[in-house]
Nucleic acid binder design. Sequence first.
DNA 1: GTCTATAAGGTGATAGAC
DNA 2: GTCTATCACCTTATAGAC
Lengths: 212, 212
Amino acid sequence: MPKTSAVLAKEPVRQPAKSAATRRKILDAAARTFRDKGYAATTLNDIADAAEIRAASLYYYFRSKEDLLDAVFGIGMQRVVDAVRQRSAALPANATLAQRIQVAIEAHLEMLLQQGDYTSANIRIFGQVPKSVQRKQLPLREDYAEFWRELLEKAQKAGEIRAEVDLGIMRMLIFGALNWCTEWADPKKGPVREIARQATMLVLDGIARRKK
Amino acid sequence: MPKTSAVLAKEPVRQPAKSAATRRKILDAAARTFRDKGYAATTLNDIADAAEIRAASLYYYFRSKEDLLDAVFGIGMQRVVDAVRQRSAALPANATLAQRIQVAIEAHLEMLLQQGDYTSANIRIFGQVPKSVQRKQLPLREDYAEFWRELLEKAQKAGEIRAEVDLGIMRMLIFGALNWCTEWADPKKGPVREIARQATMLVLDGIARRKK
DNA sequence: GTCTATAAGGTGATAGAC
DNA sequence: GTCTATCACCTTATAGAC
């Protein structure tokens, strides 16, 4: 909430930098704690401790615990949407399915495993969060789903994906393979790049050795 | 807790059928509620209501909320282990990788989506549950992982899985694709069989049309 | 076995001083 | 902006009657 301006002040209007920084600290703390413990098990005291303030001060920045959760979710989903769209847009227009899939998988996994707790919090705990918050997030989720839906549909129409593939089911299976990585993958123990490589391999060619 | 017997009674010792039935009702209610809302958000009153008793009565059957969770988890994991092992054992000794994978995937998905809330509760909320409960469940989980590890290792040694496949990563990606189904698949809206078919297709051959 | 009553402690949220 | 103090409520768990 920026000051409503002070037109006649000699000093340039100070952006409330400190306030913004505190807000960010709260969001960071909330994202990490929600991600690790889930929504219900996380208390405002947990978040306040991690953000180095008192629990009551949270209410200067957010109206309620649900509001804070909603903010974390929004940031997390927006980030993955932006990352995947941006990286895909950078591909040449004639890029193959294999290239497009690989780029999307890499971007998705990087946001999930390296970039931040916001996206992984969203992915991990979404299903066990108050329905009201889920509902508010649906448009953004749908936006992301739409990206993949288009990608896969175009590829199937172009003959790059076999006709027997049910795109609706397959898209969710692919999301599953990727999203589940929050449950086991540790970027400190192995490069995300290698996971992305194996995931791309799975999606495009499976694991079997055979002649198609 | 069965009666400690009454050797001289004319009537055969009555199994505490009513007690066992109540215990089962509690477990069923707990599995469903944990699955839907998560562990922390589920109160003992929620469970008691669904089981049609008072919350205090739960303590006649379980020492604590954690104990109840542990029981639900144990049943859920045991069921999927049994189902997958049993169905796999029924295959002929010379069954191919494709057949073995398909059978395991089908059994896993059926337990997850049709058979009960116990397995899906375990899969869904495991990551956001007290560490003490997670630790108690590890041996059983490891047991199940071992089944897949063996299946994949044998297949790769036999040349049925390409050498470039990292079995550790790939196993977790496959688990992800399957386990994520609890988040979106609805057996009422489409047959589990078809999801299993697509999942098997993904794992064995991916989605791309190309000559290997 | 199941209940009512209650303890002991924590929760999200608000009021108001500074 | 951040704090201390506090409220009203809900939680897990126990005690003891029936």
